[in-house]
Write a protein that binds this DNA or RNA. Sequence first.
DNA 1: CATGAATGAGAATTCATTCAT
DNA 2: AATGAATGAATTCTCATTCAT
Lengths: 218, 218, 218, 218
Amino acid sequence: MSETSRANSSTAGGTPARERKLRAQGRRTLRKLLEAGRTVFESKGFREARVDDIAAEAGTSHGTFYLYFANKDELFEALAADVVEEMQSLAAELGPIDSGEEGYRTLRDWLDRFAALYSHHAPVISVWQSSDAPTQLMRLGRHALSDLVDVLAKRVAESPAPHDIDPDTAAMAFVSLIERFNYLVTVRRLHVRRDTMLDTLARILHTGFFGGDAGGRS
Amino acid sequence: MSETSRANSSTAGGTPARERKLRAQGRRTLRKLLEAGRTVFESKGFREARVDDIAAEAGTSHGTFYLYFANKDELFEALAADVVEEMQSLAAELGPIDSGEEGYRTLRDWLDRFAALYSHHAPVISVWQSSDAPTQLMRLGRHALSDLVDVLAKRVAESPAPHDIDPDTAAMAFVSLIERFNYLVTVRRLHVRRDTMLDTLARILHTGFFGGDAGGRS
Amino acid sequence: MSETSRANSSTAGGTPARERKLRAQGRRTLRKLLEAGRTVFESKGFREARVDDIAAEAGTSHGTFYLYFANKDELFEALAADVVEEMQSLAAELGPIDSGEEGYRTLRDWLDRFAALYSHHAPVISVWQSSDAPTQLMRLGRHALSDLVDVLAKRVAESPAPHDIDPDTAAMAFVSLIERFNYLVTVRRLHVRRDTMLDTLARILHTGFFGGDAGGRS
Amino acid sequence: MSETSRANSSTAGGTPARERKLRAQGRRTLRKLLEAGRTVFESKGFREARVDDIAAEAGTSHGTFYLYFANKDELFEALAADVVEEMQSLAAELGPIDSGEEGYRTLRDWLDRFAALYSHHAPVISVWQSSDAPTQLMRLGRHALSDLVDVLAKRVAESPAPHDIDPDTAAMAFVSLIERFNYLVTVRRLHVRRDTMLDTLARILHTGFFGGDAGGRS
DNA sequence: CATGAATGAGAATTCATTCAT
DNA sequence: AATGAATGAATTCTCATTCAT
């Protein structure tokens, strides 16, 4: 069950697209452009992605792009909308984590889902985390992650953590760790076996943040 | 003692600078350009930084820049050289971390030094971690951090960590956490009190990675 | 009959042009740029020709140029391709020159055709002969002329020339004379009546290189 | 005796130099700059020659150049002055060429001297012949060569040349041939034995322009 | 005298965006 | 709906020339 539900992949489109009613062909082109955007943003980053690259990747012409999006930012936003939403529901899914084995499993499963989400949306998320985006767009990203931070802060606060741990700070640290780690694996293509990754991260996070007993020592 | 010794800030300069003999004034200008680079890279990121911005910040003219560096990359490299070196010596400083209170203190001190290094070199480090740099430059960054990862993997392996933790993976997670956290604080200007930050991170990392006892629960 | 057939003037275009499919308008612009190149190269020489000048002369904007050619060199090459070809077929046309009146007429006709070719392609040829072009481009020119030198060497060797004449050297001398003379006339605008020019050159060359009898002395 | 007398190599210098009285060291630097100019102009042509290149070649600093010459043009002019002078005296040396063996020898000797002059001054002359120079400077060149053309026209007119040869046109052709041929040999480094070259050119020119009997046919 | 330092007017090129077919 | 064509602002880099030490 490591797939987050993302039934209706963004069919939004930018301002130009919304001002017309799209027919079958139009919707197809729109989808191709969104997909192409994902691909190109991932490989080149936001600034380096050329509208031309995206159009070429989508197999349409340069001008067509502007039939659907007012500019690059809008395409990005369309992609980002999805992510924000998914990120929020993922945050919502994160229930209390107790310090026992059950908490460990809950956490591990959740990390699995987070990894799945990340790997699909890496292009967008990694643009957020770089300073490589117009400030405008970065605000989106901040919102997406801040929900997560809030929930995490609550979970940490609930747990029997050491007294010198500040929940908000801890939550930020938690997000830092998983965001960046997934970035290394997904974007920088550092190879780690999925199981190893989940075992290790879950154990560390459970122990470090949620009072988990480190269990059988080696 | 939260300041790393960085007496001799890079006075290297790029190819053009090395091909001339600099007099007092020249050396001064070189230093101003390096400093300006740091400033501008920090506020705008590598790609968005204009050579013009840097020159203006340094209070020199456009063309003067090219008297000292062949291009933006070279300026960046000059800055990076410093960081690589400091990062390596910081890695070397990280001795064994035991699971007791002494290990905790060692770790906390080291994190303090890391934060100091980061805050001074944020512009450079944050460029490395974004995909926002020519691949050429990123290799530098990879080297700098991989030393750190290696040392950490060794320290984790030594410690009485849970059996399902893979030291290499853990090391990556450790670096992810501290790099990104400091990024948020330094570049994104998220406000956290220094003490809170050190207490929280040290406690979490000690507990999560080095078998530290979480100490007095709340 | 002093016009060489050059029906299909180069419609090639540079790399960017070849990567798009040109419509009627595009082809027109391409042609205008090529023609503008010819004009500007002729009046300013290769190095002094500004891409802006060429664009202006073609009545298009700056950026449009780069829709058709990657840079000045490519435009030049497109022009040069034509010349090389024409030069080679002109070389092939040069049959044996006997020492009698018929040889004289053959030679005079050929010089006429050479002059026609030269006047149309002066901008390109004169760039070749100056050291004023990237070495890359000069190689093209060397090939074009060396064919001519080869044929001429053969013709001179066939003719009853004095024993102390080296055919290869003579061929070079021949090409030197006609190339430079036409340069002076075409590019430097030295005024000489066409007939006078052809009469004089044909007579001199026939006598000097092909054993022609100087005919009725004055 | 194939060396033209060029006892007093230009010691003129540009405006700045003339406004000061040069002492020993100054004169030495001036000479080094002139020599460096020759070298650099030869290898790169006028436009491509950088003041920096010249200064470096002369072993002085950038700024020093401007102590002696107001700009690149002036350096070139200083070099050219010599050539004009030598060219004129070489023109003056060219006496009548009869159609016999004596005329042949006279011509051959003169060509030898021309070749010597050319090889020493190739940088300057080849700049003249390219369109690669400010029009200002080219006028100089035109003067230098036009003297030669005038003398040659006279010599051709005197000789028993065919009636359809126009002396002025012939003179231009003559100059074209020898200028360009020497260019190929000197600048483009086409290898031809000196004797072969002189024999061939002298014979061709004697026969073609001065009614010389082609002598022993092969 | 000599030389390092600084300047700024160009020149080439790229690319997002608008337009016409 | 699609696409080729055109544009021009923005950017990097070069280099002749002037200045200060």
